[in-house]
């Protein structure tokens, strides 16, 4: 039995750990950041970067108290390393929550289609899925995309603190992958 099939079977039967993922052989990376690459290029560093908590390296993305939106990452679909336009996305990241009082906090993936068609807006509600605090937790969300996207459409990622009175949230090792 090929190793990949065996892993798939194992994941199906015992796939109770976050390590079990769909096969990623055709995945391409649309957004990837461990937030380390800004050091040396900016002084002072952008406000969303901080060294208070980090899953890897020294820096992570932080949305502080009272802030409703974090910085937005933008790229066109044509600028990604994918060969064609993806039909499915998977957002994954590591988040650090100080407590359950973060209130509604969403990792948002948006495809801005510039009025050509309705924008695509999908959000991972962190407060619903993370139940361990003061430690890094991996989260992920799968997103289906329509067939009529255009290479000029803009992919955006940001953190939306819908209830800005909640506690801060840290995000690190962000990855958005796409599949045909």
């Amino acid at each position: 039995m090929p190793l990949r099939s065996f892993q798939g079977l194992l994941c199906l039967l015992l796939g109770l750990l976050p390590g079990c993922q769909p096969p990623a052989n055709e995945a391409c990376v649309l957004i990837q950041s461990d937030f380390e690459q800004f050091e040396g290029w900016f002084d002072p560093l952008p406000g969303f970067l901080n060294a208070e908590q980090a899953h890897s390296g020294r820096y992570s993305y932080r949305l502080g108290n009272g802030a409703e939106y974090g910085s937005v990452y933008r790229t066109t679909l044509a600028n990604t390393r994918c060969e064609g336009l993806p039909r499915r996305l998977r957002l994954s990241a590591w988040v650090y929550l100080p407590s359950g009082r973060i209130r509604k906090t969403k990792l948002v993936v948006q495809v801005d289609c510039h009025g050509r068609r309705p924008n695509i807006w999908r959000a991972l509600e962190v407060s619903e899925v993370v139940r361990r605090y003061q430690q890094w937790e991996r989260v992920q969300k799968n997103i289906a995309l329509p067939a009529d996207l255009d290479p000029s459409d803009e992919l955006q990622f940001y953190v939306w603190h819908a209830e800005a009175n909640g506690e801060p949230t840290w995000v690190d090792d962000l990855l958005v992958e796409g599949w045909q």
Binding site: C11, L16, C20, Q21, K141
Partner: peptide
Amino acid sequence: TLDFDTYTTAQALW
């Protein structure tokens, strides 16, 4: 349908 955020299908099934 992979819409159960952060859980794989196997985890959601469990």
